[in-house]
Amino acid sequence: MADKVLPMREALRNALREEMIRDERVYVMGQEVGAWDGTHKVTRGFLEEFGARRVRDTPISEMVIAGAAVGSAMAGLRPVAEIMTINFAFVGMDAIINHMAKVRYMFNGQFKVPMVLRCATGWGNQATATHSHTPEPIFAHFPGLYVGMPSNARDAKGMLKAAIRDDNPVLFSEVIALYPKPGPVPEDPDFVLPIGKGDIKRPGKDVTIVSFGRGVEWSLDAAAALEKEGVDCEVVDVRWLRPLDTALIFESFKKTNRCVVVEESLPYYSFGSEIAAQIQEHMFDYMDAPVKRVSAMDVPLPYARDIELMALPNVQKVIAAVKEVI
């Protein structure tokens, strides 16, 4: 089957719809997923197609959205629960961290929790401090959870389908700014991208740029600009913060001996910290420069447009970081 150019939002919709058709146990719930077609319109038309039994509007109650998903997954369903924005996941943190992640382990494997918690994520658009988090590294901290964040429409479809079919609990983050971005998407209903496999988004030989989610776009734009200056960057999209494809990162690093990490999240105890640690632990003999990190600034995100933009990562910051390691 051929590819079709779709915005990431529609790629996700197709993935979810195909999996609901494929497996009667898959159902969706969350705030606004039904009558309002989903806050980000991923579940548009689902209420009509699948009915209120499988498309459940919930109260504003993240503890119930996440907690009841855990319970129903333990009882044999395969919930795809939606948290409107990942900021609100903090309200349901006990269900996510203490239960979704740990039930299997705490029951010595007697119960599984095959659920997906879809969260819209990302900074920007003046949504400010309590509304603008990209906190996926926090969730990736906890063993038991898988954490994925696609950078384009094709990956979004293949990764979400893998997440729904997997028996492990998956926190699946979707960058709001990427929802409208179009890209070629396979129409094959069995197109699945395996969990934990990263992807080389651009081959190169001089510097490895490791990123995920929206950072991939900044990295590719930076690489295009740097190519004109004779710098050949390889862009590694890890796709999954957990399980992390360290093999792919190391393979690239052995070739380039230099690394820049790009993320939308905050700098302390971050994705960048983890990649830098992994490289110095395992790749020390290959290092020609310190690992450089590009992230948001270490502040709660402010509202005023000028200082908000200043606090965020961008292409120029990636270019500057690459120039520091070559």
């Binding site: 400010t128 401090a129 509304h131 709660p300 402010p302 509202y303 005023a304 200082i307």
Partner: peptide
Amino acid sequence: SGARQMPSH
């Protein structure tokens, strides 16, 4: 908030 918070906060 010195324009750090969203409006209506």
